[in-house]
Design a protein around this nucleic acid. Structure first.
Lengths: 158, 158
DNA sequence: ATGCACCTTCCCACAATGGGAAGGTCAACC
DNA sequence: GGTTGACCTTCCCATTGTGGGAAGGTGCAT
């Protein structure tokens, strides 16, 4: 398998792949990715194939995959006898993680928006947001229901 | 200002506030929060007011505020002459940060779902997901548009 | 007095990234 | 040949918030 075409240095590989030289060294460190060769003076040397792998890694990072998930993706990528079901499973599990995080963030946003809606946002000190953080629901009337704000602090659902 | 009622140790304060003893010490370290007193043998001693502050911190963390944002919130909380507008501004800026993160995550999910939709997920190796990561759009026909998949890899919008 | 539960500080680890120092290398130019 | 500037190497540090654990002191009940 004569992979090497013309070899390039880390700076060139970084520019060609969009991965910083710093991160390329890190990926090398943690055995995620090993460059083709080293010059006799210790310089890392990258083949076009290496750059391809770096782009793969970058794209996967951009899609939110962790380094560990990428490790598995790279293995699958290089495995000619992989089952696409395995790739899909990995991707869908990642999607579920992402969606869980989205749910959490949305719950926070909902709560905060709700609180902010009831905050006058003026020069006066009374503030339902601080009241909620302090654990005492504001004694303001609820603008929507007209009820006293009993709701023991809107839940974030966390 | 005689704040102290009965004082408690860190373990009791932790249980009463929902913040781990470990984190209470950390907040102390970084000057986010200083307990009422120390016993002559060095034990941190917490007043009910301290526990109240810890609950405040915990609630704010649950809402996704960073330690630095909480520092500002605590200052506002303790400032009797604060303007609720300042609190609201802080909260809304945080909401915008959260929403930006949500946008990013959603873009990732959209892309991944799109790719996964076109992946057979069977025992065969062909996989549009890996093809995308590798930078070469899969040569499969697009099921929706009936077009060749020219779309140079669905963008995450990042 | 012995023991157990609790407290203290200090160090380590995580994930992924960047900053920067100290020192070696390469190529070009005079 | 020598110098310069761009580039490479490794090593250490910081980030953010959290937990684990060690070594050693304290408090209280039996």
């Amino acid at each position: 398998m004569a992979t090497s075409g013309k070899l390039m240095t880390i700076g060139q590989a970084a520019r060609a792949s969009g991965v910083s030289a710093k991160m390329i060294r890190y990926y090398d460190d943690i055995d995620l990715f090993r460059p083709e060769a080293r010059s006799d003076t210790g310089y890392r040397l990258f083949s076009p194939t290496d750059v391809h792998a770096l782009r793969f890694i970058k794209r996967a990072r951009d899609l939110g995959f962790s380094v560990d998930e990428i490790r598995r993706l790279l293995t699958l990528w290089q495995d000619q006898s992989r089952a696409s079901a395995d790739v899909k499973a990995l991707a869908m599990e990642h999607v579920r993680e992402l969606e869980a995080r989205i749910q959490q963030l949305e719950a926070m946003v909902r709560t905060l928006r709700h609180l902010a809606d009831h905050c006058q946002g003026n020069e006066r000190p009374e503030c339902p947001i601080l009241d909620d953080l302090a654990g005492q629901a504001s004694p303001e009337a609820d603008a929507v229901t007209g009820n006293r704000v009993r709701h023991s602090r809107a839940s974030t659902g966390l």
